[in-house]
Simulated scan of single mutants.
Amino acid sequence: MSLALRRWQRAPGSLTARLKALGERFEVRTLRQRVAPLLPEERCVLGAGRHLVREVVLCVDGVPLVWARSVAPARTLRGPWRALAGLGTRPLGQLLFDDARVARSALVPHHWHRGHPGHGRVRRDWLTVTGADWPAAVVAGRSSVFKRRGAKLRVFEAFAPELIEFASRTKNQAAGPEFRA
């Protein structure tokens, strides 16, 4: 994995804001939002029960760059995470980073190899959105847990290798030199 990709895995703040700085048009393509089974690492963080799972692809200037999955206990949709249910194609980052009552855990880097349940999901979704297979053998990403009034929301973001090339050739350098390839 490249140093540039590791920088994206460790970058603090809003991924939405960082991606918006790379181009003219930022887009959220919602793949699904429903009650769904959890991945093993999600169960460890969020526990058992019913959970709302939202999976999206984040695009800049029409180019898919990030696959993201957010998971929240269904019971919190009537409370602290009620806005999550109605997000549609709006970015989750605005909900999380525009609210001073939301705290974020440390970022955890992930490397999903073939055989990991999330790897297959990312590959299937990427094929649906782009018409091509995920462009790497490993899905490199990161996760963090957000808390609002004690309620947890876990977010996982997988970075397509194209992100590094896209970021390095962008005309808009607002993302900062530390995040260029």
Rank of each mutant, 00 (worst) to 15 (best):
R142L: 05
E42C: 02
S14T: 06
F159H: 07
S70T: 09
A74L: 13
R148Q: 08
E178N: 10
A158G: 04
L46G: 07
L52S: 08
V139S: 00
A68D: 03
A151R: 07
P109Y: 02
G176M: 02
A17Q: 13
L127E: 12
T16I: 08
R114C: 11
R32T: 13
A181N: 14
L153I: 07
D125I: 07
L96F: 01
A4I: 08
R123Y: 09
D61T: 01
A83T: 08
R180C: 08
N172L: 09
Q33T: 04
Q9K: 00
P161W: 03
L52F: 03
L19P: 04
E157I: 02
R10Q: 15
H116T: 10
I164Y: 07
G79I: 10
H111C: 15
R18T: 13
A158V: 05
W8N: 03
V102L: 04
E178M: 10
V60Y: 03
N172D: 15
G13D: 06
I164R: 11
T128Q: 14
H119S: 09
P91M: 02
A175E: 15
T89C: 11
L107I: 09
V57C: 01
R154Y: 09
F179E: 13
S2M: 12
V66F: 01
L46P: 04
R25H: 14
V139Y: 06
L77E: 06
C59A: 10
P37E: 04
A132C: 14
W134P: 05
W81L: 05
A100C: 11
G150A: 04
A100Q: 14
R7Y: 08
V28M: 02
E41L: 11
E24Y: 07
P135L: 01
L92Q: 02
K171Q: 15
K20F: 00
L19H: 01
L52C: 04
G79E: 13
A17S: 12
A74I: 12
L153N: 01
V28K: 07
